[in-house]
Design a protein around this nucleic acid. Structure first.
Lengths: 221, 221, 221, 221
DNA sequence: AATGAATGAGGCTTCATTCAT
DNA sequence: AATGAATGAAGCCTCATTCAT
């Protein structure tokens, strides 16, 4: 009755360990995002987990390593999303728009990731600098951008002088700001940047802006 | 006995008090910017001041109020910079470019303000929401943008469908991201967004992009 | 009715602070002596004091500084005892015997001091080395020994080749060992070195030995 | 198939087990000596061993038993050294000097043993008291001392009233103090008691002192 | 108006040990 | 006989704040 498919006898524990690690990482991400690095409470993370505080230290070593692990996982997710990007069949304009939308959507869907990155910047990026996993990892999107820009510039559609990393920065800026600064922006200007009813508006606007920039006749400025 | 010319007897003290307040605020801004709200240490702020920790409580009430005061002062500075903005004599394109540059320059010059805003967003903008001084204060830039957009749209130079707040968000996004996320961006992509040698490049790029967006033929997208 | 003798109004607090410090030091000495540096519990020290654990950190800074302070006070006490030493009027033999007795008595009366010194040696004397108060403080007894030896050697009573520091080491050895190693010695040899009934015996023995050594004809060995 | 010459199948393991035990004991001795009983870390001991922490519990039961085992082995070594003592052919004076030298040399060569004994005394000798192996084991040296004293007293060379255990205490005092308290003594008096260049000096001094004491005319004191 | 002294509450971490095979 | 994974209990310390003039 026990099929060969079944995991070995110790699998239960092993799977539990992996699940526990993942659970800790989930809760830690939320807690760090909620209150910042120093504001986050290891006790609180433990309390919202099926394990104890002790286990956090057993699995991760400490608060700092836990934060780094949460950051690594979050960056892994966006890299994965970018890796899924399939724009080879699209013309340069559509491809860039698609790229902007994927970036937009990922930021929209992962506000905690955005907060983690904000927090990491408050701390001078010390954790990713020391991570080894993230140091100079770049972004799969970059290679895609490079290919699209080359194609667009070759075909004469795009202005020739745009750099891939700069373009990535421009796209990220808007996506990031819209999520990261939504609170102060909302209070200051009375406008909710992440209002679902405005999502399509901003998504289009970003694409429009990038395309306009890439196809503009610089002499016009 | 005391002529009207004479300052009141406590004037020296009063001026000292004002100076002390300002000094505390300076140091607090740096300390909060350095380590985030919870990472900042009241002891550290006091140590780097000519007063004692007790005085911080005497003048501001507590850590939270001190943070709010620092934030209020920082926002006051950028509003002041925007108020200096004199673009009435410029054509819409030049005016928008000028506005973008002023915003760019202010962000460049006040990285601590940027960090304070990042931190405030980590905390859901609770301090400015409760501030009274900042709540819905908006931005002097906004009125300027509205006027420029109206002129540009009327003259047919600008595409008709751009909103002033949205444009402000776009400009702020890039200026903010470049400073706020320079650490993670630097480590991840090996590129220093605030490299002085690239400052003019990015300043121009922002203007180009905004102008391109405003003058674009949307049908092109 | 309140006489001028009375302490100023803030004296109560000040005296309380001094008393509290002293009380903490008393209890800390006992606790460190009881269990060694790492075995000692800050919580336990606090519990046996009229203050809280927090006050220990307020007054001393931490466990390590508390240990150092206890050590400094204990060394201060023996130096004071040695400073009381008045042997100028005695002949060299009686003077040396008196010195040995004072040393013997101080060790006898301060077993906690002995333990503190044992503990400090386990830790490589790092605390006194860093103390500043104790570093190379030497001992008042040393100068006394030097004078006695000089007198004794000059008069021909003492063998000429004995060094003051060496003699101090010899005297201290026995006094220290008798107290510090009484537990293992007792279990191993079934003899209580600090048995009150044997105190005079050991006190005399030490003097006899030292005198014998100082007055011996080395050729005899 | 298995000849009688062959070790039993488990011999390899058994020998390994014995070697592992010895290795653990070596490292434990160093670690306890380094930091005291409570300062020593089971993790550290395990890390410096080819086994795991779990094995320490498997072989010894716990930290306390491990300390006891280390102590037992160290005491076994000095007892063995004393057992090697061959002074039957020497005259009483030479014999006593030889005994003092052997004790001196053993202390010199086993500073970790000295530290273990210091630590054990900090803890009231509770481990050796409970050991069974060490309780009232005395010292082989004692019997030797007794015989030498008897011979020396009988021949009139030695003063009659010296007890063997007392003499053992005197000799041990100096040997022990010189090693155990070298750190505080060094810092306090600026003199290194275990300076190799002074070894012979102190070795001779101890012998001189003991002989002087044993041969002295008590009336002199 | 200004301040030195004191403090309650909670933070992160690490220890020796045992569970479960 | 031997072991990898897990853990309860407690450790030291530091934080923002208030007491009491």
């Amino acid at each position: 009755m026990t099929s060969v498919e079944e995991p070995p006898r110790s699998a239960g524990r092993v799977r539990d360990a992996a699940r526990t690690r993942a659970e800790i990482l989930d809760v830690a991400t939320q807690e760090f995002a909620r209150a910042g690095y120093d504001g986050a409470r290891v006790d609180e993370i433990a309390a919202r987990t099926r394990t104890t505080k002790r286990m956090i230290y057993y699995y991760f070593g400490g608060k700092e390593q836990l934060f780094t692990a949460a950051l690594e996982r979050a960056y892994g997710a966006i890299r994965e999303a970018e890796r899924q990007l399939d724009v080879e069949h699209l013309d340069p304009v559509a491809a860039i728009r698609r790229l902007a939308e994927v970036t937009f959507d990922h930021h929209e869907r992962h506000p905690d990731f955005i907060r983690l990155v904000s927090i990491e910047n408050i701390h001078g990026a010390e954790h990713i600098a020391a991570s080894g996993k993230l140091d100079r990892i770049g972004s799969p999107a970059l290679e895609v951008i490079r290919r699209i820009l080359a194609a667009g510039q070759e075909s004469g559609l795009f202005t020739a002088d745009v750099d891939a990393v700069d373009l990535h920065a421009v796209i990220s800026s808007f996506c990031f700001f819209r999520v990261a600064n939504r609170h102060t922006f909302g209070v200051l200007f009375g406008r909710n940047l992440v209002d679902p009813g405005q999502r399509e508006h901003y998504r289009t606007m970003l694409g429009d802006m990038v395309i306009a920039y890439l196809t503009a006749d610089r002499a016009a400025g």
